[in-house]
Design a binder for these strands. Structure first.
Lengths: 207, 207
DNA sequence: CCGAAGTGGATAGTGACGCTCTCCAGTATT
DNA sequence: AATACTGGAGAGCGTCACTATCCACTTCGG
């Protein structure tokens, strides 16, 4: 398959494919002559994956490259799948056993609330900071989001997460793929789903 | 309050405040002389709101302006709150009772599934197209997301939406505000919450 | 065997976006 | 009188995801 055919098969312009090749998102094709290379079905799949991650998942090209690397790496054990996924999505590495021995560690509303919930999460996971920032933003915007309502949200989210975890396959490579893609691509599914659910409830309860 | 004090009170640079004024995100201050105006506490709140919507909610300046307009408008009745919110978040208006009388209307996987669920939603709501696109992207990326799993997600989301709907206040203006801000600002709360829930489940179930 | 078309490769340009900088004449303060 | 600050407006900047142009070099149809 030549690059023009690859372009036709994926609806992505040749210029963009060249860009993806340059950026290392797409592996080079099998060189046939000095001015042509052969691309295979794997390239088509990979391009579909790239488009899903960037357009729907909203990932930047740099993040997409990191995610693709994580999926491709065969080494990751099933245990650290979640960590690997989240590290790939973050800009920089986050040490899972940090050297900072400053006793108490950071305290925040989210951390306190998580402890109250009895959730076993890494206390230094940066995703907690994201939660903190989002929660704080709600307060700053005048949206009263108290602990009670947060706990109500947590119940719904827990059910979603249970579904996520249950659908992870047994084989390591598939597990990594499922977790990474699920982390990125399911959020854009849940967002419209939530709005439709709100609509359904409002309509069926008679406004 | 002069603009420099407003800047100090909100940690937003004077240049950026001027930009917000120019873009119509921030109403002009009460003119005192020809070269100075007074800003009040309302401006401080509004700036906090703008920052929450743009930085955490990820809204563009144009969308933020539309959202702010919807919140400010006193006319919206409690019934159409959801529609008003979603219209504000979309780029263009969407007619709630469209003139297209082409019989069947569009069919898609999401629409069929929604019908199976018995969800009462507007069949032409563009948010369904978002769901379709996200679902399709999951498939394109090789993430097997079947109807069963989608229904499992729907149960969790429904619980979340129930919490949303219950926390909407009675007074019309407050309702609009709550719904609009909830639509935009709660998503960034749910995203890290979901990841933490996954982590909790994986850890507590022994990986 | 010739010329048009296509290829990999590199460099530069584009348009959108959210600021940020610079300048201005006109107050306000010291 | 000198300095600082104001509202207002235009232009510039850095990032990002492409996109367009140019190049020397095959490949293919006639």
């Amino acid at each position: 398959m030549k690059i023009s055919e690859l372009s036709a098969a994926t609806d992505v312009s040749v210029a963009t494919l060249k860009y993806y090749l340059r950026e290392g998102l797409l592996p080079p094709g099998e060189p046939l002559t000095r001015t042509s290379a052969a691309y295979g079905e794997g390239h088509v799949e990979r391009i579909r994956l790239i488009r899903a991650l960037t357009s729907v998942g909203g990932l930047s090209v740099a993040t997409t490259r990191r995610v693709l690397e994580v999926i491709a790496q065969p080494g990751t054990g099933r245990v650290d799948v979640l960590g690997a996924a989240q590290r790939a999505l973050l800009g920089e590495e986050f040490v899972s056993d940090p050297p900072c021995a400053d006793g108490a560690g950071p305290t925040s509303r989210a951390r306190t609330w998580l402890a109250d919930q009895g959730w076993q999460v890494h206390p230094l996971d940066p995703v907690i900071d994201d939660l903190d920032a989002a929660w704080e933003a709600c307060e700053a915007a005048g949206l009263g989001l108290d602990e009670e309502r947060m706990t109500a949200y947590a119940h719904g989210v827990l059910q979603i997460a249970r579904t996520d975890v249950e659908s992870v396959p047994q084989d390591p490579a598939g597990a990594v793929r499922q977790v990474v893609l699920g982390t990125v691509l399911v959020d854009p599914v849940l967002t419209p789903l939530r709005r439709l659910a709100q609509q359904h409830l409002t309509v069926s309860e008679g406004g």
